[in-house]
Computed example of a mutant assay.
Amino acid sequence: MEHKYVMVGGLAFSENSDMKKLENYASKGWILQDIVGGFFYKLKKDKPQSIIYSLDYQNNADEEYFSIFKEAGWNLVVSGGGMYIFSAPAGTKPIYSNSKSEIDKYVRAKNSSKKGVIFSLAMCLPILAFIFLSAIYIKFLFPVSIILLMIDVVVFVFSFMPYLSYKSRIKNCGEKYELTSNKIQAIVFGLIGIAFLIQAIKLLLQKRYLSIVYIILGLVEFSVSVSCYKNYKKQC
């Protein structure tokens, strides 16, 4: 079976444009099958279909939850981490037809992202203590402590940015917000990518293997930044 991989635009910031992108692919015969690594949509080749997609957040999904969607004509396609993407034939009534239900959706998403923020902040002090101790007493573990710090920073960024996005969506849902948030996200992730690559250059000059980790993190941040910028330009 033929497959194609398309980068996720950042569902917290470009939900509408991502769903529209998937719908366009479906019309060309590329149907959403899965999300790989949190960064790529996995599409399978099929006959062209006129379908629509919708995203929902639910931490405690049960049989009743799924039966409600199924009765309304929506079928589950992808799920993971309290996030669910449903599909339905074009013309099916939207999952959320009023502002209150849509706000409830983003409140659930915000609370989920908040857990990631709290976890990364809670881990920060022990990791900093580990860095301090390894730098003085057990130097061979110092690179490991830096890697742990970088992982914690990534967890924080990928939790805190969506948290801010969902918080803003609760106050102001709509295309104008998504346009602005895509631009902000592109700038923020671009700056983080630059910071990682600068550190990578410093480590390369010192001939340290840890530079490879920073290069990978920098490239990941840049790829996300480019994706957000593309979404921003499409909406302009």
Rank of each mutant, 00 (worst) to 15 (best):
K28Y: 04
P48I: 02
P126S: 04
Y25H: 04
G80T: 10
A109S: 13
Y137D: 05
R108E: 06
F119L: 15
V117F: 12
A61Q: 10
F66L: 11
A26S: 05
P126V: 06
Y106E: 13
Q58I: 09
Y65V: 10
E63C: 04
K21N: 01
I127D: 03
K21V: 05
P126L: 15
G73M: 12
L55D: 00
S54R: 04
I51E: 06
A72Q: 15
L133W: 13
K45T: 08
G9A: 11
V117A: 05
P89H: 09
I136L: 09
A90G: 00
M19T: 10
A109N: 00
F119Q: 03
R108T: 03
Y137A: 12
I103S: 02
E63H: 02
L133M: 09
V117C: 12
K47T: 09
S112I: 14
A12Y: 11
Q49R: 12
I35F: 03
F39H: 09
M123H: 04
G91P: 11
G29Q: 13
F13S: 08
I127S: 01
D56N: 12
I95F: 02
A135H: 13
W30R: 07
L133F: 10
I85P: 01
S112E: 09
T92H: 07
S87F: 05
K28I: 00
E15R: 10
K21R: 04
E15P: 03
L125K: 08
K21M: 06
S120K: 04
D104Y: 10
L32H: 05
A26G: 07
F132G: 06
L43M: 13
A12D: 11
Y84N: 03
D46C: 11
E63N: 11
Q49V: 03
N111F: 03
F130S: 00
I103E: 10
G10I: 14
V107T: 13
I95C: 00
S27C: 08
E64D: 12
D46E: 08
I35W: 07
K139V: 09
G29C: 06
K42A: 14
A26R: 06
P89T: 13
S67C: 01
M123A: 11
F119C: 05
L133N: 05
E23A: 09
N16W: 01
G38F: 14
S99V: 10
K21L: 08
F69A: 00
K105C: 02
A26C: 01
K20Q: 14
L133I: 07
S113C: 15
I131G: 05
C124L: 14
I31E: 03
F40I: 07
N24F: 07
N98P: 10
E64Y: 15
G91H: 12
K42I: 11
F66V: 11
Y53L: 03
F66H: 09
F132L: 08
A88H: 02
L76W: 12
G82R: 06
P94F: 07
S134V: 12
L128S: 13
A88T: 03
Y57L: 09
E23W: 01
S101F: 01
L133E: 05
K45S: 01
S79V: 11
I31H: 04
Q58H: 05
K105V: 03
N111M: 02
G38H: 15
G10H: 14
N59Q: 15
A61M: 08
N98R: 08
E23G: 06
N16F: 04
S99P: 06
E71M: 10
S120A: 12
Y106P: 03
